[in-house]
């Protein structure tokens, strides 16, 4: 009979604090609408917004809905953020015309796949194409590849987006999030 009591793994790193820092930065930036297609890397931030009565958390069927929704929010005087995985960036391409041509702020926080330590080959094409796709559509892209770098990078992108009325994206690297391995899960 296997031991079923969960024990903390001494090798596990402490829970990262960057999602809490990002939540605080987005609150200070005045974010009122949060549009998202969930990603595991965003789960802690999503829980924080879900518990926040001052923000509206909207689950999308596809990421480009969020680009349009936040354009509408801006027309009505509210700031927002779009939380998505790198695969969802590909879904947004034509919709990014909207903030580009209208000079609207758009803040995108992108958790990366197809990046450091990826095990799933199907994630590679979009993951490797994420930054180039965003830049091709005029989005200002910055990257965070260490936990300590996430909050300052988000702070910088939020200020860029909301003070200069541009689309800006932060790519949160897989090295921050940890690489999954379904092959290990399949063996368990």
């Amino acid at each position: 009979m296997a031991e079923t009591t969960a024990k903390p793994n001494p090798a596990s790193p402490p829970l990262p604090s960057w999602p809490d820092d990002v939540y605080r930065i987005l609150k200070e930036a005045g974010v009122k609408q949060v549009a998202m297609v969930p990603d595991a890397g965003h789960s802690r931030l999503i829980r924080a917004f879900d518990a926040d009565p001052e923000t509206r958390l909207v689950t999308l069927t596809t990421e480009e809905e969020g680009v349009a929704m936040l354009a509408g929010a801006w027309l009505g005087g509210q700031r927002g953020v779009l939380l998505l995985q790198s695969s969802g960036v590909g879904n947004c391409i034509n919709m990014l015309s909207l903030p580009a041509i209208c000079h609207m702020p758009l803040l995108m926080l992108v958790t990366m796949r197809g990046d450091w330590g990826e095990f799933n080959p199907w994630q590679i094409p979009m993951g490797q194409g994420t930054q180039a796709s965003l830049e091709a559509m005029g989005v200002i892209v910055t990257r965070a590849d260490t936990p300590d770098d996430v909050a300052p990078t988000v702070w910088g992108a939020a200020n860029l987006a909301f003070n200069t009325w541009r689309p800006a994206a932060v790519l949160i690297g897989q090295r921050v999030l940890g690489a999954k391995n379904f092959k290990e899960l399949a063996r368990k």
Partner: peptide, 12 residues
């Protein structure tokens, strides 16, 4: 985009 822009605007 139209319907989702309407949603963001209606919420704002």
């Amino acid at each position: 985009a139209a319907a989702m822009m309407g949603l963001g605007l209606a919420l704002a």
